[in-house]
Computed example of a mutant assay.
Amino acid sequence: MDDGRNDVLSTLAPLIQVRPLVEQHCLFGPGWSAPHAREPLGMAPFHIVTAGSAQVLLPDLERILHLAAGDVLLLPHGTRHTVRTAGTVAAPTTRLNHRDNGVVEVKWTSDLPEAVSAVPSDGSATPLALELICGRFAFERVADNPLLALLPEAVHLKAADQRESRRLARLVETIRDEVALPRPGGRAIATDLARALFTMILRGHLEGHGAGTEAAGLLARPATARVVAALVRDPARAWTLDELADQAHLSRATLVRAFRAAGAPAPLAFLAQVRMTLAVRHLVAEGLSLAETAARVGYESESAFSRAFKRHYHAAPGDYRDAARA
């Protein structure tokens, strides 16, 4: 990402209005599984793998994600999921112990001694299979947060894939130290570090997704941000360029120039992108039918929606949904 786009993200991040909640330090022995119900609107759970490896089951998406040490997973829309130690089946008889260490709630499986706090780096035997730091990001003004609406169901930041992997590793390690080795001010420090982590998650996602970067550029400017928010709130509306210019309080020509300056397509072409982004969520994550999805994103018939979807994704909606859930 170039310097200009980094400046856009610096402008955008404070406007997202997110409150981090660092809540749990989890220590799991082999064969542990922890289900999580769908979160209320505006609550986005996150998991940081600080040692070991994990699998995250997303039943609504029919997907399994594999997380290694240093990886971070954000579920922007609070989808239900199950976290489990990798490679083994859950042991239903294993109990969880709990205690509050003054910073977070510590949870550990009953097959572990309370003193266990990390997987040994020398590879020596240990019953600890997975160490996690878990929490949630609470988004304020969810209905007016178009970037949140355009994020996917799962954002997986892989430590091994990041150009700034050492920075991510240092940040994760520092959060872990504040949580596992509590000192005065630990809760406040962990919260501030989690806010920085959220921005890194957002940056990592935007660097790998061109459409997301375009949205970031538009949202960083008040006039175009009003247009994006209007499109996300009501994607089914038969918007005209005049109506979008009214939303931005700009002339039509100035609005088009503003979109181009943000690296985005023309406003009505961007509306088509928004509709396709939301269509994927309706189809894959929410399991809506083609007819329901078409109506939600502004198409009068399934055939018209299917043609538009195929032009955008080079696959029919049903084939895309099946591949996403494979």
Rank of each mutant, 00 (worst) to 15 (best):
R307D: 14
R296D: 15
S306D: 10
Y299K: 06
Y299W: 03
S289W: 01
A285N: 09
T293R: 03
A308Q: 14
T293C: 12
E286K: 01
F305G: 07
L283T: 15
S303W: 01
H312V: 02
S289P: 01
L283W: 15
T293G: 13
A291L: 12
S289Y: 02
L290K: 03
R311C: 03
R311M: 02
E300C: 08
Y299P: 12
G287A: 04
H312S: 12
F305L: 11
S289L: 01
S289R: 05
L288N: 09
A291R: 09
L283C: 15
S306N: 07
R307P: 14
R296K: 15
H312A: 12
H312E: 08
R296Q: 15
A308M: 13
T293D: 14
S303V: 08
L288Y: 09
S289G: 11
R311S: 04
E302H: 04
E302A: 13
F309M: 07
G287Y: 01
E300Y: 00
F309S: 09
A285W: 00
E302I: 03
L290I: 06
R311Q: 13
A295Q: 08
V284Q: 06
V284P: 10
A295D: 10
A308Y: 10
E292Y: 02
E302S: 14
E286T: 03
E302V: 10
A308K: 05
L290F: 02
G298A: 12
H312L: 01
S289E: 03
L283E: 14
Y299C: 12
R296A: 15
F305Y: 09
G298R: 03
F309I: 12
S301T: 13
V284M: 07
A294Y: 01
L290Q: 10
K310P: 02
S289H: 05
R296V: 11
V297R: 06
S303Q: 08
L283K: 14
S306I: 05
Y299T: 08
G287I: 04
Y299V: 11
A294H: 00
E286D: 12
S301A: 12
E302M: 04
F309T: 07
A304N: 07
T293S: 14
A304Y: 00
E300D: 14
L288C: 13
E292H: 08
L288H: 12
A304E: 04
F309N: 11
E302W: 00
A285C: 09
E300S: 11
V284G: 14
A294I: 04
R296M: 15
E300R: 08
A304F: 00
R296I: 07
A294C: 06
L290R: 05
A294L: 06
L288T: 09
L288E: 11
R296H: 13
A295L: 13
L288Q: 12
A285K: 02
E286I: 01
A304P: 00
S301I: 02
S306P: 05
V297D: 04
A308H: 13
A295K: 11
E300P: 06
G287H: 02
R307Y: 03
F305N: 10
A304C: 01
S306Y: 06
A308E: 15
A295E: 09
G298D: 11
A295R: 13
S306E: 12
A291W: 00
Y299L: 09
F309C: 09
L283S: 15
S306G: 10
H312D: 06
K310E: 12
E300A: 15
K310W: 01
H312Y: 03
V297I: 10
E302T: 11
G287D: 07
F309Y: 11
F309V: 05
S306H: 02
S289N: 05
A295T: 08
